[in-house]
Computed example of a mutant assay.
Amino acid sequence: MRKINKIHQATYAPIDDLITYRAIPTHDVEYIDPFLLLNHHGPQVYKPGNRGLPFGPHPHRGFETLTFILEGDIMHQDTGGGKDIIEAGGVQWMTAGSGLMHAEVSSEKFKQEGGPLEILQLWFNLPARYKMTAPKYIGLQKNKIPVVELDNGLVKVNVISGSWGEVQAPIQNLSDINMVSIEMEQGGEFVYNIPSERNIFFYVVRGSVKVNGETADKLSLVEFENTGKEIKVEALETAYILFGHALPFHEPVVSHGPFVMNTEQEIREAFQDYQMGKMGQWES
């Protein structure tokens, strides 16, 4: 079995009126190469006539994002031409690459009617050779994501990027990052093998699970060592987890706000390019 180094609790870090827990970075764990950041927004209920999500136009460069919409919706728009509304069960994958501006806000319908909201956003680093790749956006509604059922249907694996066994995901990313979300009914279990040289991302969104013999409750990030291959997970109650793996890049990570590069000079260049309009001009 893959050995667990430590189980970390996400830190409460609200953004405006949005309930937010941050799993990485925290005081305990800076990042798990190449997984850089996870913000867990909600769960909470918005009243009718609300302002929605507070993420208006802002720039990014040098990394990728994967956004999980568990409840509510997100209206995405970017200067690369991407624009859509993704609803509950769907995901959004954005390659910021050389740079773009985007906004992630609630739809007019959600702002008018309100309702439950729970959203998670995970940041992936890009290796130096891809930092300046062309930006790209993919939005997938729930019905476009393959589902693998295990343990007589007690476990449902939503295959988002890379693959799960023989099932190819709809997103094939630049850095061979495999990501799934997994819904588990109480008593459901699965076993999965991951080569020891690959780093694992494992976050419990809801419920409680036993993973490789240790209990991890909701809002827990399980940090694994690079020894052993087997991951065994059993749901102690109805649970939802994010589960992924990737080869580490072993490159310097220099981040400042919305930019993630390899050197301080590249960060300065990113700010200059943004100010000069090289990441696009925003059109509302």
Rank of each mutant, 00 (worst) to 15 (best):
M1T: 09
R2D: 13
R2L: 02
H8Q: 02
I15F: 15
I15L: 14
L18R: 10
I24W: 02
T26D: 09
D28H: 14
D28C: 01
Y31Q: 11
I32Q: 02
P34E: 04
F35T: 02
L36I: 15
L36D: 07
L38C: 05
Q44D: 06
Y46K: 13
K47Y: 06
N50F: 04
R51A: 13
L53C: 03
H58Q: 09
P59R: 04
P59T: 03
H60Y: 03
E64C: 14
D73L: 05
I74A: 02
M75S: 11
D78M: 06
T79S: 13
G80A: 07
G81H: 13
K83R: 15
I85G: 03
I86Q: 05
G90T: 03
G90A: 14
V91R: 00
M94L: 07
T95W: 04
A96Y: 01
L100H: 03
M101Q: 11
E104H: 04
V105C: 08
F110G: 01
G115W: 01
G115D: 07
P116K: 14
L117Q: 13
E118G: 04
L120H: 08
W123H: 02
F124S: 15
N125K: 06
N125Y: 02
L126I: 07
P127E: 11
R129T: 05
K131N: 05
M132I: 02
M132T: 02
K136W: 07
K136N: 06
I138W: 01
V148Y: 11
N152Q: 14
G153D: 11
L154C: 08
K156V: 06
V159L: 08
S161L: 01
G165W: 15
A169L: 07
P170N: 01
Q172P: 00
Q172I: 15
D176I: 09
N178Q: 09
V180Y: 01
V180D: 04
V180L: 05
V180Q: 01
I182S: 15
G188N: 14
E189L: 02
Y192C: 05
I194M: 14
P195I: 06
E197K: 10
N199L: 02
I200L: 13
I200C: 02
I200R: 10
F202Q: 05
Y203F: 09
R206N: 12
G207M: 09
S208A: 14
K210R: 15
V211C: 11
V211A: 04
T215N: 14
K218D: 10
V222P: 15
F224V: 03
F224E: 00
E225A: 15
N226Y: 07
G228S: 07
T238W: 09
L242F: 01
H245T: 05
A246E: 06
A246I: 12
L247K: 12
E251Q: 09
E251W: 07
V254W: 00
F259E: 03
I267K: 00
A270Y: 10
F271C: 00
Y274L: 01
Q275R: 10
K278S: 00
M279E: 03
Q281P: 01
Q281G: 08
Q281S: 14
E283I: 15
S284H: 12
S284F: 14
